[in-house]
Design a protein around this nucleic acid. Structure first.
Lengths: 236, 236
DNA sequence: CAGTGGTCTAGACCACACT
DNA sequence: GTGTGGTCTAGACCACTGG
């Protein structure tokens, strides 16, 4: 039950250690860490590899491992709106606009890998941050995978509902981000003037088996929201 | 000279193998791959780990490794405008607007970790795709690290110039993306009506030693450009 | 030159999926 | 139960950095 892989424990330990070091300070060598925490060097490397990916440390061959410069580096990760707002120090909320079941349209059916006309659950919400509109969000889910969803409270985290009530864990998501201007209807719901800029995020959420679970379109107020993340050179 | 790590060779081989399989088809087991390619299982796992991160395959414990569903999955990676356009099947180009050396302003100095007033090179370009304006780009570089840069041809890839002439490789970048509306001056350069939406990307490019090398602000036409990428659940 | 991270091996046991 | 991926070990050699 308890996932207590050594490299995970070590990773969390190293996270704390790193937090107390200055930027660009050298960590102990891999061999030293292995001896100190009584694990093999391979395990140390596994833990450091995750921290390197996360932008916490960087490694220079022949020189050592060092504390990375944490300025932006909010590594882009799959989070719910609720988690996202909490991380930004804001109080998340919701105003339910629509919650119903409809036949899938062609674009929705295609992204969810079902047939056109199959029933899907649609949830439209105005997401709030400290009670002010932040985002207009439309979610489509395959009805068959979430029986009884519409009977639950839909003002909280949909991700938690999926995980707790339907044993669905979202592991990955494919996203497309673009800039748009919001028109009258959407502008009113977001509480901004027509023609205001917004960040539109289209997302397809996938479970551990790579099956599409949800399709979401989010419209974020440009004056309230931006996306920060770190990118790397790709391996050939 | 040639980096021919076994796991890299294997990774490329597996990329080709995967390309010939159907979506969700199972790959050979790790032990079988190890035997077939005459490497240890650890090496196989190293190669598969990179492919999993890249969204090429997914693994299910106890079940196997499978070909991922490649719909969006243009994994976000650090690329130059030239590479980005080429990947989209467009011909990149540039129109130089400004190329000079100026004292660093406070915000530029802060992101480049230098003192205010230290000389920086500024390059402003309209980036073209098939000869049409796509993006308005402003780059700042620490003058001391790129001597003689202004004497070179600045209409091509700046990244290539940095790599070939100054031995600077950009490994990582911190980015912030937001939606804006472009005003008169910028709108004219981009060839769009004032008030049109645009995607603004602020980037700090870092080298292998985690040192800031460049600070770039890019303004992309919203009607021509979006950003697609895959995100994952974060490790605690 | 010594010391670092990068790569690789051979073998072992565990947790989980599937039948 | 059988077979899969997940974890871990102990040891070895290589490539690179830095004094």
């Amino acid at each position: 039950m308890v996932l207590a892989a050594k490299h995970e424990i070590l990773r969390q330990q190293l996270r704390q250690d790193v937090a107390e070091l200055d930027t660009h300070a050298a960590l102990p060598t891999e061999r030293e860490l292995a001896a100190r925490y009584e694990v093999s060097r391979a395990t140390v490397r596994q833990a450091l590899g995750v921290l390197e990916e996360a932008g916490v440390v960087y490694r220079v061959q022949g020189a050592g491992t060092f504390v990375a410069d944490r300025t932006v580096s909010k590594s882009l990760s799959l989070t719910s709106f609720s988690e996202d707002m909490t991380a930004r120090g804001l109080r998340p909320g919701s105003r339910l606009v629509v919650a119903d079941e409809i036949p899938a349209t062609a674009p929705v059916a295609e992204t969810l890998r079902i047939d056109v006309g199959e029933p899907v659950v649609r949830v439209v919400r105005v997401r709030l941050a400290n009670d002010a509109p932040m985002c207009l969000e439309t979610v489509y889910l395959v009805s068959g995978r979430v029986p009884g969803l519409l009977g639950h409270d839909l003002t909280g985290s949909l991700y938690e509902l999926l995980a707790e009530r339907h044993d669905i864990a979202l592991i990955r998501a494919d996203q497309v981000v673009k800039a748009v201007c919001v028109d009258g209807a959407d502008a009113a719901l977001l509480g901004v003037a027509p023609g205001s800029p917004a960040l539109q995020v289209d997302r397809i959420g996938l479970d551990q088996r790579d099956r599409p679970v949800e399709r979401t379109t989010s419209l974020y107020r440009a004056d309230q929201y931006d996306i920060a993340f770190t990118i790397r050179r790709e391996q050939p």
